[in-house]
């Protein structure tokens, strides 16, 4: 009897070690580039590829200040936050509405519409860049914040609808039925029951879209010409020329730009886990 308890304990510890060994191994591979990036940001152009130590002897903290001022990050930072917020809110609202309809409501042409949206994900649009510019020109939206935002909301919709539809379909129907008996309208059910229950999925949509918008620059280059409208990635361009790349400043710049998105992720990932309990309370 005693032996089997011991055996059980050993097995448990071994399993624990195995799990963590695996997890830590994967984690190391994920963290290493980040550490390398940080340490490169603290080196000089001459030492960045010759001094391979992860903790440089003479850290150049000034690189961060230089990157911020040379890249003109102040206004770009503000722009990027604004674009990210508006696009994410737009995508979550519009996509969740449509996804709920596709998952729970009946109307003619439902499948056709859904596959139409899905198809926009599939076709890489090589000629579309120029077409998009011509279109926005006609709508007088070139070089405006609105044009840049709307295009990106549209770009995020298909993925958002597809993702949220999958999650709405998996939700138990009884809560919605209960709400209907309580006299809730269709919109009310969507707003009060379905949305809170889908918090984990919405968190995922927020994370995906925020990352895409935050890292976007091709569209910005195409549509915007006023420097005061440009997003953060424009600041990084200064450090990577066609020929000369200023690696330490580039790394410092990337570090600065990556911090907000990591913070956003740390906040949002809590909702992925917390979703179920919050949903239960609402019910």
């Amino acid at each position: 009897m005693k032996d089997s308890v011991l055996f059980y304990k050993i097995e448990k510890i071994l399993g624990w070690i195995r799990d963590h060994f695996f997890l830590i191994l994967v984690s190391l591979s994920c963290v290493f580039p980040l550490v390398w990036m940080l340490s490169s940001a603290l080196k000089t152009q001459a030492t960045v590829f010759s001094d391979m130590s992860l903790f440089p002897a003479h850290p150049q903290w000034g690189n961060f200040y230089l990157a911020w001022t040379k890249g003109g990050f102040g206004i770009y930072f503000f722009n990027s936050i604004f674009y990210t917020l508006t696009v994410v809110i737009g995508v979550v609202f519009i996509a969740s509405l449509a996804a709920y309809a596709f998952a729970r409501l009946e109307f003619p042409g439902k499948n056709i519409f859904f596959y139409l949206f899905l198809a926009t994900l599939m076709i890489p649009l090589p000629g579309a860049f120029i077409a998009l510019y011509v279109l926005l020109m006609k709508l007088h939206l070139v070089n405006t914040r609105l044009g840049y935002i709307l295009i990106q909301i549209n770009g995020g919709l298909a993925l958002g609808i597809f993702l949220l539809k999958t999650f709405f379909e998996r939700m138990p129907r009884d809560l919605e039925d209960a709400a209907r008996i309580d006299g809730c309208g269709k919109f009310g059910i969507y707003w009060r029951v379905a949305l809170p229950l889908a918090k984990p999925a919405i968190a995922v949509v927020v994370i995906f879209n925020a990352l895409t918008v935050w890292n976007e620059y091709l569209l910005a280059m195409l549509l915007l010409s006023n420097k005061s409208l440009m997003p953060l990635q424009r600041g990084l361009m200064i450090f990577q020329g066609a020929h000369v790349t200023q690696y330490p400043l580039l790394m410092a710049g990337i570090t600065i730009t990556v911090i907000p998105i990591v913070l956003m992720y740390i906040v949002m990932q809590k909702y992925i886990i917390a979703g179920i309990t919050a949903g239960a309370v609402t019910g």
Binding site: F93, I94, A95, L97, A98, Y100, A101, F102, L105, E106, F107, P108, F113, L116, F117, T120, I123, L125, P126, G127, A128, A131, L132, L135, L139, L150, I151, I153, N154, L157, I161, K186, Y190
Partner: peptide
């Protein structure tokens, strides 16, 4: 049914304005 359409209307509107023309162009 009309009410149900309202749910996809914003998404559809965006699609019609911003996706159809580039698609057609391609």
């Amino acid at each position: 049914i009309f009410g149900n359409y309202l749910f996809i209307l914003p998404a559809l509107g965006m699609f019609l304005i911003f996706s159809v023309y580039p698609f057609f162009k391609v």
